[in-house]
Design a protein around this nucleic acid. Sequence first.
DNA 1: TCAAAAGTGTTAAGCCTACACCCATGA
DNA 2: TCATGGGTGTAGGCTTAACACTTTTGA
Lengths: 217, 217
Amino acid sequence: MAVDCIIFGFDDEELKLLLIKRNLEPEKGKWSLMGGFLREDETASQAANRILHSLTGLRDVYMDQVRTFSQPDRDPVERTISIAYYALIKIEDHNKELSRQHSAEWFSLNKAPKLIFDHGDMVTTAINLLRYKTSVQPIGFELLPEKFTMRQLQKLYEAILDQELDKRNFVKKINQLDVLTKLEEKDMTSSKKGSYLYQFNKEKYASESKRDFSLNV
Amino acid sequence: MAVDCIIFGFDDEELKLLLIKRNLEPEKGKWSLMGGFLREDETASQAANRILHSLTGLRDVYMDQVRTFSQPDRDPVERTISIAYYALIKIEDHNKELSRQHSAEWFSLNKAPKLIFDHGDMVTTAINLLRYKTSVQPIGFELLPEKFTMRQLQKLYEAILDQELDKRNFVKKINQLDVLTKLEEKDMTSSKKGSYLYQFNKEKYASESKRDFSLNV
DNA sequence: TCAAAAGTGTTAAGCCTACACCCATGA
DNA sequence: TCATGGGTGTAGGCTTAACACTTTTGA
């Protein structure tokens, strides 16, 4: 029993994937997802968190079970059944030294190399699930810094859905959800005028029976 | 590694669940899902089909992976990780003798007994997935006979969604999907006037880029 | 003063919802 | 002839999509 992690990040432009270069045979030198074996005393979700932590140094990260992959010959060495999880992390938070040690690198989704075994399927399945989940739960914020601009948020949704969105309609819909706090602060790096920063407001989301919303951007 | 099957059926009124009375310790005599162990040479999906077949005699049944349950102590005897699948079957098609041999019985969803281990969670997760899936793929038909009336179909959706629907609006929406064939034949059992029978039309669904529709009844 | 991104409203079309009456038939 | 379930259309409200100009300010 193994667990594999599809690790998503966002760099203000594209959705990215953290992949590791495999350092053992078979398929040595090829790219793969970060994975590991399930221990006796842990749940799959705990294993996924542990494995993610060993590569990124992060804890308390949003993760979701994708699906279990069980083709008998999916791993040519011995039968391994893998439970796939995806994780949403803030790229800048992760421990670069740790990921360097694992020869890990970030790839844009559409420029990612071919992956070993059925890891490509895992990624595809994970993205589809991510698309669904973002329309039903406010998990996009997990990929952004604490404070972010509307433009960053829109770019994120565009990256996840792989389609352009209308700026005005997007702002309207996000505001309707009423789960953000608009800060006084402005981000001055992106333009001369500067743009307001927002924060995800857990209280607003939790309190007001917005537990399951529907966001059709 | 085990596989457990959430077997859904529909009796023209309610969504039902096929459960078996456990004949071994622990929890002997309690109700549970039908399950079994994964064999060396099969995928989880093949195992699910095999297990379903052993209870119902049915093959080529619609099944979907729900999620994998991995709490170390979920089975008190020994650690068992279970991949849950749900199945949609036509109640009248299944082999009653086989299910009698397994002391299996159909229960209405809301009248089902408490289940062993985490089987209750499995059922809840499966229903949520089923609700989502029916809004995105025409899988409801798997629970109905070959030929069915609009009223049966509506009752089915009402059972799945657990809410009443407007008759006229429902018909409109189903017709918009354009995946049914209206037959000349009428079903005369339900009323004196008789009601037209319909059939799910795989060709219509497959051909016309309706691969992913959206049905918001 | 100009370039570059931020911010902001309105309108028209389409979709969804609510709602009630006639039809066909067997008893 | 009457009771039962089957079948059908429309109008109003709401939501969604399309669309462009002004603001701010650093260079």
